[in-house]
Design a protein around this nucleic acid. Structure first.
Lengths: 128, 128
DNA sequence: TTTCTTGCAAAACATTTGCAAATCG
DNA sequence: CGATTTGCAAATGTTTTGCAAGAAA
């Protein structure tokens, strides 16, 4: 199952090397810079494969576009509603909170993702 | 500012009456059932307006599509990765957790949204 | 050979835009 | 009247599909 073709490996490398949660289009651009020219469909196929294999994550934060994240440690995201900047959040949820949610919903919870919206430091300062 | 035209009111009513987090297309359908026939652009305009006014919420949960939610109390969502069912989660985050994230990021946090993925009760049972 | 993967173009969606007509105040 | 909103069709942007050709097992 771990069939890392040249295309998939190149896509994986780009995502792992990017720390700005690129969209599929961003990834296309970066591949092109590295002299790879894959079809859009191939990049999407590769991304889908890599997500299924648990090698990267797909994020749905702003509407419309999927973003990809190569950082696999448990983490969350905060988005500045003014400048759009997105930063990673490492503070982890308390375990008893997750248990409580499992109890409330009856779900077997496998993953969770938390998105914070607000103003980043710079935009707060600029507003003064 | 509270300029609730006929179209906007109709869209608001549909969203408020729906408890399944409809997409814009779903909302179109439900409007049509109620004999309203608005242009797509009008529905999108209305949704955008209603979100800006804080009357409904826009959710980005699965890729690609925006979903809308008329329930304004603070709450989160759990999605079953097998059957796609989405349920609401009312358990609230501990306040000191939010403070910790604000400290970590420097953000002024205004909103947050938590998405749980896993298996709902029924799909867990079906898997046995 | 059999199966999986790629590349390309076209298709399918979701959402936005431009602009004239309608409505509101 | 002047400003805002609507409706429509076309444009845009993202992602998926169909299918033939290519690569791998």
């Amino acid at each position: 199952m771990a069939n890392l073709t040249k295309q998939r490996r190149a896509v994986l490398e780009v995502v792992k090397a990017s720390h700005d949660h690129p969209t599929a289009a961003d990834i296309m651009d970066r591949l092109r810079e590295k002299q790879y020219k894959f079809a859009y469909a191939t990049v999407y196929n590769s991304l889908k494969y890599l997500v299924e294999q648990g090698l990267i994550k797909e994020l749905h934060i702003t509407g419309g576009v999927s973003r990809y994240d190569g950082r696999m440690e448990e983490h969350h995201h905060a988005v500045c509603d003014k400048c759009g900047k997105m930063v990673e959040v490492l503070t982890e949820l308390p375990g008893d909170f997750l248990e409580e949610v499992a109890r409330e919903t009856g779900f077997l919870i496998q993953r969770h993702h938390l998105i914070f919206h607000g103003l980043c430091k710079e935009c707060q300062d600029a507003a003064r």
